[in-house]
Design a protein around this nucleic acid. Structure first.
Length: 283
DNA sequence: CTGTAATCCTGCGAGC
DNA sequence: TGCTCGCAGGATTACA
């Protein structure tokens, strides 16, 4: 569910609520998440003070003063929030970190349990883990590397944008919105794009992500920020979830197709798929 | 190697 | 109202 803008919002919300706070107790649910909970983690977490809260791609990292790092992924339905201790416990709450002072508690909730929580020994271990999985942040993509990543693959543009090793943090919503802004069809093959189109797509990805962060991400159903607030970017969608509605640019009717296993929304007027012509133009 | 499909889960809306 | 079906913001693995 949450993509980069939602995760960034959670991190920004949690940072002032957690940094400097100590975990004084921890309750761990029985249901298993995506990665198994190791028995010694609770002992290593209780008593630790939060030194930092940050994000890389869709992964959240809590730096603990003694050195270990808690790495959290929200999957599709994960929520990571600070609540008052007397606030009712919602179902599917798997972890509760009690904070010192009057700071309430940090809760991890995830109905579908596609999310994960893992404790790493130190910064080097986290770096190795993330480096294996993630390409650059959208704002930091190297133009040449991005163009080459597109032009050397026969995959669709949609599949490439969803590949976290090409660019970190883009998911189904923002892939569709970026392709619309770049005027590119989701089923277009990477090999067929020109340098100018690759640049347009790279800029569109960065712009859409930045815009969505400003709106605190998108809430369609489950997503809430670190303080429980919903996002607002769902009201800015131009194509995602707008099947059958008019394109804001040309008034053609938005269509949906299945690409790379995901629903892909696009405007047939603004996003033509013309691999033949593009292929010929390249020679 | 490349690319797609199935898998892990629960909840909800659509359609009958 | 109640049931079944398909789909959902993701990552990983298993296969063609």
């Amino acid at each position: 569910m949450p993509e980069l803008p939602e995760v960034e919002t959670v991190v920004r919300d949690l940072r002032p609520l957690l940094v400097g706070r100590r975990f004084v107790a921890l309750r761990v649910g029985r249901r298993k998440l995506r990665r198994p909970w190791k028995r010694d983690w609770a002992a290593r977490l209780v008593g630790a003070t939060v030194a930092g809260v940050r994000r890389r791609g869709k992964w959240i990292v809590l730096d603990l003063d003694a050195g270990p790092r808690l790495v959290v992924h929200l999957g599709m339905t994960g929520q990571f929030t600070v609540a008052k201790s007397d606030e009712a416990m919602k179902d599917h709450t798997h972890l509760v970190f009690e904070l010192n002072g009057d700071a309430g508690e940090l809760r991890f909730r995830d109905a579908r349990r596609f999310g994960s929580v893992e404790l790493f020994a130190d910064e080097a271990a986290v770096r190795a883990f993330l480096a294996d999985r993630l390409g650059p942040e959208p704002a930091e993509i190297d133009p040449v590397a991005f163009r080459e990543a597109l032009q050397r693959t026969g995959r669709t543009l949609k599949a490439v944008l969803l590949d976290q090793t090409v660019v970190a943090g883009v998911g189904n919503i923002y892939a569709d919105e970026a392709l619309f802004r770049a005027g590119l069809h989701p089923q277009r093959r990477g090999q067929t794009v020109t340098a100018a189109e690759a640049d347009r797509l790279r800029e569109a990805v960065a712009a859409v992500i930045a815009d969505a962060i400003e709106h605190r991400g998108s809430t369609i159903r489950d997503y809430v920020g670190g303080s429980g607030l919903r996002g607002g970017y769902q009201d800015e969608f131009r194509v995602y979830g707008r099947t059958g509605k008019p394109c804001p640019a040309c008034a053609a009717v938005i269509e949906v197709v299945r690409v790379a296993g995901r629903s892909s929304h696009y405007c047939p007027g603004c996003q033509k798929n013309s691999p033949q012509r593009a292929r010929r133009a390249q020679r």
